[in-house]
Structure formats: structure tokens, C-alpha cells
Design a protein around this nucleic acid. Sequence first.
DNA 1: AGAGATCTTCGTACGTTGTACGTGGTACGC
DNA 2: GCGTACCACGTACAACGTACGAAGATCTCT
Lengths: 246, 246
Amino acid sequence: MYDKSRHRNEEHMELPERPTKARVPLSKERLLRAAVALADRGGFEALTMRKLADELGAGAMSLYHYVPNKDELLDGMIEIVFGEIDLPSTDVDWKTALRQRAISTREVLNRHRWAVGLMESRPTPGLASLRLHDAVLACLREAGFSIELTIQAYSVQDAYIYGFALQEKNLPFESAEESAAVAEEQVRQFAELAEERQLAALAQEFPYLAEVVAGHVAKVGYDFAAAFEYGLDLILDALEKRRDAA
Amino acid sequence: MYDKSRHRNEEHMELPERPTKARVPLSKERLLRAAVALADRGGFEALTMRKLADELGAGAMSLYHYVPNKDELLDGMIEIVFGEIDLPSTDVDWKTALRQRAISTREVLNRHRWAVGLMESRPTPGLASLRLHDAVLACLREAGFSIELTIQAYSVQDAYIYGFALQEKNLPFESAEESAAVAEEQVRQFAELAEERQLAALAQEFPYLAEVVAGHVAKVGYDFAAAFEYGLDLILDALEKRRDAA
DNA sequence: AGAGATCTTCGTACGTTGTACGTGGTACGC
DNA sequence: GCGTACCACGTACAACGTACGAAGATCTCT
């Protein structure tokens, strides 16, 4: 990093030392943003108090002036993630609005994969989280869903969204464009296992799996965004029917 | 635990020392079962190589004779969990069969909450996992679903099941019976936040959230099993319609 | 029976983590 | 000038995963 032991201006021939970089004061805001960036870049296990401090050009213990412990740091980071999710619009019909917020949620969770599995589990929701919850509930209630059906609708949607994000969590690639990589990966897994059992025997033992992998995924690839929206529409349409049947 | 430094039968006045407990030899099987039990009891963070060794009356490094590292230990544990999930029956119609395996999956994931978030993410699926995947695909294909629709159907179901389990992951209570506890918890969270902002202001800022929490959840409680099955049936029925429309 | 050889067990030690504690420096009121 | 905050950080400790190599246990072959 840089030499912390040097004195201020004792040696007047020193470099100007770019005051902007070093002089930005620490703050909870800055901590959280740097932590999110670090986790995005290196994954959850790269988020270490020491590494985060290094990133900020500070000592590890300095962080504890702004955050009581690592758990609260995580809470703050999750609040940032929740804040990035689009609230359902009030200008369009409920299905379009909820569809959009679901897609937005998936995008955000794909940007911050470390957050999947932490967001729903935190015991104390923050303001951004509450705001989002309230907006979604508002959208459903104003669309004529009963309280009971609203709760169910929320439960189904969120389970689906977070479950889908969970499955995408540690895919080897980043964006859905290079979907052919999935096929390669799948096939490679088969090949790996084939070292223990014979490949033919494996395809024979799991014929339907082989059919799907070889016959479809490997051929046309797999578009996660499209798959997500298919299931999403399936759920939203079904919810609408339940509402109208009541 | 017990005194590891004692010699075999040097001191003949020793207790019979229950040979069954201490004499059961270590084995990968035993490791995995003990590890699952430990994680079930104390949560994921309680699963430590040292604690696991203690549990087995062994030294920490002894474990590494049966498992190359902790990650492979986790893989083995996850295989056990997958093995506990009921395969879809071939004797009943597809919807009943898949309904049953979904319910079984939720139960298993509720028994082993530490596994949620690990199972889908492992890069190398085991045999139990493959067996389950194949059986589910078989069920759908034989019910007349096209390959494309089969993939979609699988994706939607699993996303929903794992997502639901994720939401249940760190609930404060174990079984769904004491569902009133949820309400209490929810209300307590409101009360906690009310220390920063006023309670009335909070209910005013999030009116729909307040309506749902106070107006319904707190009154009738929340039955997770029923909610799960409601969403599950919604999805399965919708899938059936898509199949018949093709 | 004795001598390797092989299989299991484990003590010690290292590097990394979160963080308790106390110390030093800077800023600002009087 | 002198406290009184506040802010930054060095050191230290317990707990973690695990590399290394040395013991003990068991088996094999003569």
C-alpha cells in the first residue's frame, strides 16, 4: 500500500502524495460501499475485515469505529442490495409492475451473488427492505387480492425468485449470454463421474437425465433469463386466476 | 468427553469402559453421520473439525484419514441429505408423485437447515442427487411433458421448493405447530424499530405491511406447511395446463 | 517368532480469521 | 494552555482449517 511510517512534511522533498485518495475520511457509508464492491469482486469469502481495511487504506481496527462487528456490516451491505431493487411501479397494472420488480430482483441478486441466502435470513429487516415489502403488498392489495391471497401470492413469488437466484448463485459464468458454457459444464461433470463408473453405464442408469442434458441443453443451450420469466409468468397468471375465482 | 490418556487395562480396577462406544472404529460413514448430527444440533457454524473429532472421541487430525478436507466432508453430508428425500413414486399419477417428493424435500431441508444454500450450489453432484434428478425427470417425461416443458417444470418446482426452504431457514422455532411465535417475532421486530422512529409513524409509513402483520398474521398465525402446499399446488396445476395446451 | 510394511491415529505448528483492549494523535471548547 | 472528546490503529488472543511427520497398531512374509 503506502508507507505509513513516514512523517508529515519533515522531508520536504516528498511527493505531493495525492491528498484526495488518502484524505477521504472513513465513514459507515464508505465502509459499506467498499465492502459490497469487495464481495462482488472476490466473493463472500474474500470479505475480510483486514482486506476491507486495506482496500480503504486503513488499519483493520479502524473499521470498528463505524460498525460494531462484522454481522452488522453484513446487515448494512444487505440494506444496500435491497435499495437497488426497483419498487413496483404504481403507474402500470399490477402484473406488469410485479413482473418488473421480480426481474429487477433477479438482476440485483445476480450482481451481488454473495447476498443470496443472507437477505431472507437476517432477523432484523432494514428500512429499504421494509419499503420494498410494503410496496409489493400495496400492489397486490390495490389489485383486489384479499389479505389471505396477498400473503400467499407474496410467499410464492419470493420463494420462486430467491430460489431461482440460489440456483444461479455459483454458476461459472457471469452473464446469461454465454449460455453454451452451461452445457459444457454439465457434460464435463458427466465425464468426471465417468471415471468412476463407465459413461455408458451412467447414461443407462440415469436415462432421463442423459436425455435432457445431451438432447436439449447441450444442443440449444440454456437461457436463464428466459427460463426465469417463463416460470414467473406461470406463477403470476395462476395467481390472477385465483384472485378472479374468489 | 473421556480421558484419552488412560492405558488399556494397566490399572485393572478401571471401569469396563463400555467398549462399544470407544471401540467403534472410525469410518467415513461414521464421520458423515456425526457431522450431520452435529450441524443439525448446533447449526452450520458449530461444525468444526475439532468439535466433530471430539464428538467421535478422536483427535482432530484423525478425520483427515477419511476425508481430504472439509469441503469434501460437506459434499458427503449433502449426499446424505439428498438420500433422505423420497423419490417420486411410480405407482401414482405424476402430480401426486411430484407433490409428495416436494413435501418430502421441504421436510428434509427443514430437518437439516444448514444444508439449504449448499445443496444447489455444489459443483459436483453425487449419486443420490443424480438419482433424484433422474426420477423427477422420468416422472415428468412419462406424464407427457415435452423436453422443453420438462426442463421448465423442473426449474420452477425446484426454485420454489428451495426458495421456500430458504425463507424458513432461520426461523426461531423448529416445527410449524407453534406458528403463533412468528407473529410475536414480527411484532417484536416492529417494536424494536419503533425505538428509532415512532411506532405510529412506522405503521403510517408502511400501512400495507402493518395491515398484513397486525390484521392477519398476528391473528390467525401462519402455517408454513399449508402455505407451502398452496403454492405448490398452484404451480403444479399451472404446469398441467401448459402441458395440455401444447 | 521376528522383521518389515502398511494402516490409523494424533501432537505440534502455521497462517488466517474476528475482535478486545489500550494507546497515541488530532480538534476544539474553555 | 489544557482538558475532553473523537478517531485511528498496533498488539494480542482464541478459534479455525490443515501440513507435516512421528508414533502406535495391525498385518504379512519368512
